[in-house]
Design a protein around this nucleic acid. Structure first.
Lengths: 347, 347
DNA sequence: ATGAAAGCGCTAACAG
DNA sequence: CTGTTAGCGCTTTCAT
């Protein structure tokens, strides 16, 4: 494979001129540039990014750092990567997958010191994510998909949870519901530190109350069995509930089973909403569930774009800032007005 | 950030000795090695992979090349990446995401010439994939997830379609079925060139016949609407069919709808199997569908491992070869013995 | 506008 | 066993 020296030789110029001609780094006579370009084309010249990076300190490579998919990633999480890779690619960057190992922090620190990366994109960001201070200390440009508890001064792209809550409440009150419940993920050590799980509960509760609805929650569930139990407990404690939003699609399986078990039907006797589940998955349920689809691809894209923006111009450019992307409400067949039958007709 | 020179200085040795001590490239006195390692640790030394790669010609970076997710990747496709990244990481390699752009071949050719990659992992391999001759010509090590029409002499990891067919046929005959049908993907220009779509049909047909079952297919479907139509057409033409396997989960939605529309029930009146769909998704259907779950993570893992193997020892090591990984049969509630009622009881 | 020379940080001969 | 010497292929001063 030809090197820049070969190109220069063939074009009868110095290596530095060939470099300048190809990169526009400095003025080059039109005729000279033409010759260099021709030579490069004939030789099928492709610059060595290692050599270039070694001197220029820029590789146009970004890393996407994510925790080991312990419980197995869903489609949503995976789309962050696809979106980020696509956006990076469009802007002339590459995305390196960097899965966590035993010692994530050490690994991340190591990786950022190898000179391979221009920046890091963080996935699955915790409310007090330790990677943030580390990257700050290492002086490595980074952006978040998600955000920490207080993300001031950071670049991040996250779901607009406020809007999500308002959309849920609006959808339900629009149908005439007056009492709703939310079945969240279980709050283990991890989820309790995980932004979406915390924020979504708060926002849905706030919006529901603001919209004048009775609100219940605290019946957390990750699995079908837990979903079934959650719904039963919920309706036992709050029989007035006519609509329920569910975070986990697995839990939704159980919720639907519980509805069926009591001889009810969705949406006639209970409106069921999925939240943060892709429309594709929501459409697989019977009845098709209404969902608030997370903008996963877009979050990945925006994260990568932000990171690249901040790389482009150290001086100018917009200051650090976050961007909140709304979810898309995709109506299914699981939303309907509540039945006005407080006399037990539902049973 | 300290360089190797700093480490060498601090340990009172030459740079080359420091390098050798850290890499074990050549014999180093125990005491010297200790000093070097101490110095490296104190300085928080991390080798510059660009400099290293520039001279050693090896970067320990692999690229995963995949087509733009036009129709949107499913969970399955995404897991190739996760699996490959995990395996690579475990073996000290990194995985670079390389999404296709307008001119995939040119882009791939370019990328392999930049010196950044040790090898390439190809996803979504076509039966006559043009990337294969290109990579061969460029003399770039590569491995396939999937395989070409005649993959002799290539490294690849693919689904064991023969086994898949046998498992489907075995499962159904075991339940007593004598007539089955298969609803494949539609065969557009792309799918007709796409290995799984072609192979799966052939293998299921072959296994069904071998097992003595009546077999019907040709009713291809990708969407719920097409799935519904396919099942109706199928049963009209082949009323003896008591079990149907479906490739697309979207089509399965339609198949179930069609079953319900005729007042039938699964599995009482029809056994429905999903093929190449994750158990997680299959569990979302009502009833939960039996599925042959593709070993996506494993395929990604094996692909990466093979690629790295072939990088490790150019001379020794196993010769190129393929590995076929079986699908896992995950029973749902959609399989049952056929009803012995050829007199229309099912209607 | 162009060329010559230096050097990014590292590994790989080659002497000693 | 260790130090010295060359580069890897490129960008970047600095002259010209």
């Amino acid at each position: 494979m030809g090197s820049l020296r070969d190109v220069a030789r063939r074009a009868n110029v110095a290596v530095s001129t060939a470099s300048a001609a190809l990169n526009g780094t400095r003025p080059v006579a039109a005729e000279t540039r033409r010759r260099v370009e021709a030579a490069a084309a004939e030789l099928g010249y492709r610059p060595n990014v290692l050599a270039r990076g070694l001197v220029s300190k820029r590789t146009r490579i970004l890393a996407l750092h994510y925790p080991a998919p312990a419980s197995g990633f869903g489609l949503t999480e995976m789309q962050f990567a696809t979106g980020a890779a696509a956006a990076a690619s469009e802007l002339g960057y590459h995305l390196l997958l960097s899965p966590e190992n035993e010692d994530p922090l050490a690994e991340l620190r190591y990786l950022t010191g190898t000179g391979l990366l221009d920046g890091v994109l963080l996935m699955e960001v915790g409310l007090d994510d330790e990677r943030v201070p580390l990257l700050t200390a290492e002086n490595v440009p980074f952006a978040l998909i998600g955000r920490t508890r207080r993300p001031d001064g950071l670049w991040f792209a996250d779901i607009d949870f406020g809007r999500l809550g308002a959309d849920v409440a609006g959808h339900l009150t629009g149908l005439g519901h007056r009492a709703m419940a939310f079945i969240n993920h279980t709050r283990d050590a991890y989820a309790g530190e995980y932004g979406p799980v915390v924020r979504i509960g708060e926002e849905i509760a706030a919006s529901a109350k603001e919209a004048g609805m009775t609100y219940a929650d605290g019946f957390d569930a990750d699995t079908a069995e837990q979903g079934r139990a959650a719904l039963d407990a919920l309706l036992a404690a709050h029989p007035e509930v006519t609509a329920v939003a569910v975070l986990s699609d697995q839990a939704a399986v159980g919720v639907l089973a519980a509805v069926e078990a009591r001889g009810w039907r969705v949406p006639r006797d209970l409106t069921v909403l999925l939240v943060l589940t892709s429309a594709q998955v929501a459409a697989m349920f019977r009845p098709r569930l209404t969902t608030l689809e997370p903008p996963s691809l877009e979050l990945g894209r925006r994260g990568a774009q932000m990171l690249i923006e901040q790389l482009a111009d150290d001086a100018a450019g917009p200051p650090p800032g976050g961007e909140l992307v709304p979810c898309r409400l995709v109506p299914g067949d699981s939303s309907a007005p509540p039945r006005h039958d407080h006399e037990g007709v539902r049973t």
